[in-house]
Design a protein around this nucleic acid. Sequence first.
DNA 1: AGGGTCCTCCCTCCTGCGGGGGAGGGTCCC
DNA 2: GGGACCCTCCCCCGCAGGAGGGAGGACCCT
Lengths: 214, 214
Amino acid sequence: MTRVVVADDQPVVLEGFTTILGATSDLEVVGTARDGVELVTLVAATRPDVALVDVRMPRLDGIAATARVRAAHPGTHVIVLTTFDLDEYVTRALEAGASGFLLKDVPAARLVEGVRLVAAGALLLGPRVARHLLADVDAAPRREVPGVDRLTPREREVLTVVAGGLSNAEVAAKLGIGEQTVKTHVSELLRKLARRDRAQLVVAAYEAGVVVPG
Amino acid sequence: MTRVVVADDQPVVLEGFTTILGATSDLEVVGTARDGVELVTLVAATRPDVALVDVRMPRLDGIAATARVRAAHPGTHVIVLTTFDLDEYVTRALEAGASGFLLKDVPAARLVEGVRLVAAGALLLGPRVARHLLADVDAAPRREVPGVDRLTPREREVLTVVAGGLSNAEVAAKLGIGEQTVKTHVSELLRKLARRDRAQLVVAAYEAGVVVPG
DNA sequence: AGGGTCCTCCCTCCTGCGGGGGAGGGTCCC
DNA sequence: GGGACCCTCCCCCGCAGGAGGGAGGACCCT
């Protein structure tokens, strides 16, 4: 059962969302709030899986409320509700820890699906927001690790898994190949990246940005 | 009715996804492909709403196939299928125009929900991918590593050096102590941080922010 | 049709690593 | 004085990890 709270200053919106979510067997609305302050208190009291939060609210707006909720209760994923798909809210909301956006006139089916996916930890964005975000990805800070560019796709994949701290046998199981094959890939990684053992391989992976901490 | 095609070189995957999607009333699998070239032809012929595409395929890989599909038919939204939700394919796939990622062992319900949302134009990312993309936006979210606060000063020091990829003998030389002593500290680190080997210790160090890449 | 790359898997050999013990000396504080 | 830590060092032992080979099949490009 996924537990949800809804925050909006418009009673009609509150009513609508509660009705839709309450009609779904695996979703449950455990509370509603009419402003940001109420929301923060409500989340602290009910510890919901998902919070639907309007951007525009009295006393404490949706962005600030999202930041407080995320800071105090990381287990609660926030979906920001907007009337229009305004880009300027998007970045700030994401920085505040929001997991997704929905328009207030979203079809019932999509609302339900979105809540479920966000509860599972997914990030849910509209198409325009996506492009906006991708611009930042290109600026990802990576250190030059000599040899990473000469890795084959499979080797890169193995590196990622090894960098998670898995043993050869575990890597083999995860990739569905033999342990001997993993050893071959690892040896090749050590040679190409000029490292000595898998611990140094983990270091190289973090330096190269193949994995990101956090 | 949402029309879907599936592309994967593994018949079992093809079969599984087709069965799941076919059992849903508003989804319809209108074709399958075993490699990228087949996929491009299939999309041109059927104009589906969503294409589920494996990253690893013969002849034309999933990334390249995605780029061609998106260029020729922007109305078709692509979901990339991966074994992991965080690997070197993610960024390239998004640049190629993919709308989302799903693990091959995704639960049926989430698969169906994901397909519907992507068909509607949403961007769908897993939790780890989301963090990856938000790495530059989000302000360095240091993960809580249980036990790191119970380390003695010397242990913390050893951890930092070990996280540099040094062997026990090298750590000993660097700290001016015996190798046996280093082993004792390392064993203690493994125990307190609940890790198995020094590779996992390196991971823990990066997660805890004891060392910082870049 | 052939050369090159990649992925896959097999073998032997040996070292470094980590588990599981024990033990002495140092400081600090009760 | 007697704990309670912390740092230091020692032994034995089993094993995963890595070196150094070889080999077959699939694919790609020319």
